[in-house]
């Protein structure tokens, strides 16, 4: 092996971050946002008194949690064009871009995990808070939106963030769709220049630094919240 080649990293670092990391972070952000919104709805469905809603949501969450993310990625990659065609009434599968497909996949998948977190958060709010909301004349959505969810969300921020760090790492799996996320970009350079050692070690380092820093932030936040309560 001919020594560690820092030069290949230096040459490609702009490309890696401009193309790859931008994709990775955008995907993480959008999927986290979509996943938390959809996950919260799933949690509300699971806790609702309408049996059918609860059963549908439970089934969805359990299904997503029992199959590997990679299989879900493959599923949605092929399923989304069909759903698109069905929704628009087209006779051919609709081609959606790699980015849109990834956002949909990760939103749908992570929602199952976020929903478990939000469910625990909602259940941690005393029943009396809901009663007090109703007693003041607020309706279900107002009570949820103004009283229960803000508290549940705040209590769960550290865990939601931890799950988002996992999501950030999980997005590397779009590699199997030959998408140029951060790892995909590193892998392209690695293969083009025959510099696998340098590129994969560098990728590992970057993922580590970002995830680790975020987890330190989460720990700080947890201590801060612990003091406030």
């Amino acid at each position: 092996m001919g020594g560690f080649d820092f030069d290949v990293i230096e040459r490609s670092v702009g490309y890696l971050f401009r193309e790859g990391m931008t994709f990775t972070l955008t995907l993480t952000g959008m999927a986290a946002l979509g996943g938390i919104v959809f996950g919260t709805l799933l949690a509300m469905m699971r806790l609702s008194s309408f049996r059918v809603l609860a059963i549908v949501a439970t089934g969805y969450v359990n299904l997503m949690r029992s199959i590997p993310l990679l299989l879900v990625i493959f599923w949605f990659y092929f399923l989304v064009p069909y759903i698109g065609a069905w929704m628009t009434g087209s006779s051919q599968p609709i081609q959606v871009g790699a980015f849109a497909s990834s956002v949909i996949t990760f939103t749908m998948f992570e929602a199952a995990y976020y929903s478990e977190i939000m469910r625990a958060g909602i259940q941690s709010i005393p029943r009396g808070q809901v009663s007090a909301g109703y007693a003041l004349g607020l309706d279900y959505w107002q009570t949820m939106g103004r009283i229960v969810l803000p508290q549940a969300f705040r209590n769960m921020i550290p865990i939601l963030l931890t799950q988002t760090i996992i999501l950030f790492q999980d997005t590397s799996l779009v590699y199997v769709l030959s998408i140029t996320d951060f790892l995909g970009a590193a892998s392209k350079i690695a293969q083009r220049d025959g510099r696998l050692v340098e590129m994969y070690l560098f990728a590992a380092l970057v993922y580590f630094v970002i995830s680790f820093s975020l987890s330190v932030v989460v720990k700080r936040l947890q201590q801060k919240i612990a003091i406030v309560r």
Binding site: Q169, L183, L196, Y200, L201, A203, A204, Y207, S215
Partner: peptide, 23 residues
């Protein structure tokens, strides 16, 4: 713990598969 949980599994597998034999 910090090392192995802050690097994506996929990247870790690449390190064992592609990088280890080289180093």
């Amino acid at each position: 713990v910090e090392l192995f949980r802050n690097i994506p599994l996929l990247v870790q597998l690449f390190l064992w598969y592609f990088v280890l034999p080289e180093v």
